[in-house]
Design a protein around this nucleic acid. Structure first.
Lengths: 257, 257
DNA sequence: CCGTTAATGTGACTTTATGTGGCTTTCTAG
DNA sequence: CTAGAAAGCCACATAAAGTCACATTAACGG
């Protein structure tokens, strides 16, 4: 008997996901009469294409990217340290751009006692936080709101970014590849971050150490030079860290400050 | 038989929370056929994500976001009634525009259990609220954030408004003049509201009865016809009300409904 | 027919999720 | 206020799932 094609499996998996919301590795293995390992490879592949998210025991359909509130508490201390380090780079009178994300939110918090700044951001929590200070002029880069990020993305956002020019941009990243390249979850998010970098005289990437072990599918196509990476811990010997250290200045923020 | 996925449990827990308001550890353990300890771990995890709060014996949904509850709303009951009345005008599949303000926020709250809608807004609290439903596509009309309104205003906002066309616009007003004209605090806000009306096939103004006694300096230069005014109480004999009644359909929302 | 390549299976090992039992904390009836 | 019951917490045990390296098989083009 001929082996069923892998593509058919992928189609069926996605369809099952569509109807049931989630699938388990064991069920799929039984259904297609293949080993669990094969199913895992399928799911891994589809996950890299961004068509589902893998969870322990199986996979779940999209819309369950780790939510902002969850990332918010993960390594909160390290992110706060990164936020303080980044805030120290901001001088009075500057116009800066702050990307969405939990690490960049820490930067906004560190800046909230400052004054005489103009801040552009696509993040709703950051926008609200800074606007409430009443001492920082805040511009919200609008667009379609991505619920998990609680931030705006899309054509409108890209348009707005193109209309501004700032002194410094602080952007986030979904992960850092082994080659030392920043990566993201979706094509759109990656493009948008790259455009943010393009709108600034200097760009810093804020990423805590957990990003070094994360792989996300889309490289961020940054053309402008990166002024530096600000992180909390540099994993010794990790290829990503080594590669990164050749490419950018790395600021390591002390977790206690 | 494969072990059911943990994520499914999480989803069901959140859904049960949505419908019942609270859940008990014992019930959940029985329902999913797992130990109470496992359920506790689930709840702890979801609590850390900020998606529920744990209490002795179970969990209950979080009542209000800090950003939304912060402002003590004047005439909250009347505004809630207006919100419900306005929400009744919105049909599935519609694209609507919601202005910033506490009255329009009440509309957003009334809409938050709906689905299959596209909502444009310049208000950050409304944007956050609706985006979190994950069932309503939300577009944030960006621009400079006005701290008091927690909403975006300015050239960028006007530009964005011009790019969209919606079925219905719900706008607020700073006051209602004796001649029955809507007025606002600033030239910019007035202009922006007028443009919002211009982007819609139909425009409703949401204003509670306190607006009838308020005078604000700038008339809102609306050119398109107003489909109606939605309010909670029509002050008998007030000139503004009389004039208004000649110009627009007036929906009076019962405070209890 | 052979060699190459991609896909799949296997087995050792690691990680994660869940259950269990002992102990502490919290609630509640009396 | 107090005692008992219920719930929570923690540490450890265990089974299921994941990962990785390597073996095996099937497919395909000379």
């Amino acid at each position: 008997m001929s082996r069923p094609l892998a593509v058919d499996r992928h189609g069926h998996i996605l369809q099952a996901l569509e109807t049931h919301g989630s699938v388990s590795v064991a069920d799929l293995a039984e259904r297609f009469n293949v080993s669990m390992e094969t199913i895992r490879r399928d799911l891994k592949l589809l996950a890299e294409e961004g068509r589902l998210v893998t969870v322990h025991g199986g996979a779940h359909r999209l819309s369950n990217e780790p939510s902002l509130s969850r990332r918010n508490i993960e390594n909160a201390e390290g992110k706060a340290a990164i936020g303080r380090a980044a805030a120290a780079l901001v001088e009075d009178g500057m116009a800066i751009l702050i990307d969405s994300g939990s690490t960049t939110l820490a930067l906004a918090q560190a800046l909230s006692s400052r004054a005489d700044l103009t801040v552009l951001t696509n993040s709703l929590p950051i926008g609200l936080l800074l606007a409430r200070t009443k001492a920082i002029k805040t511009v919200l880069l609008g667009g379609e709101i991505e619920p998990n990020d609680e931030a705006a993305f899309g054509l409108d956002t890209l348009d707005l970014i193109a209309k501004y020019r700032v002194d410094v941009a602080f952007i986030g990243a979904g992960g850092i590849s082994e080659a030392g390249q920043f990566t993201d979850y979706t094509r759109l998010a990656a493009e948008q971050r790259a455009r943010m970098a393009g709108a600034a005289k200097a760009t810093y990437v804020l990423a805590d150490h957990t990003k070094f072990s994360k792989r996300t599918p889309v490289p961020i196509p940054i053309t402008a030079p990166i002024a530096g990476l600000i992180t909390d811990l540099l994993p010794k010997g990790e290829p990503a860290a080594v590669a990164a250290s050749r490419l950018w200045t790395i600021h390591v923020a002390g977790s206690k400050a």
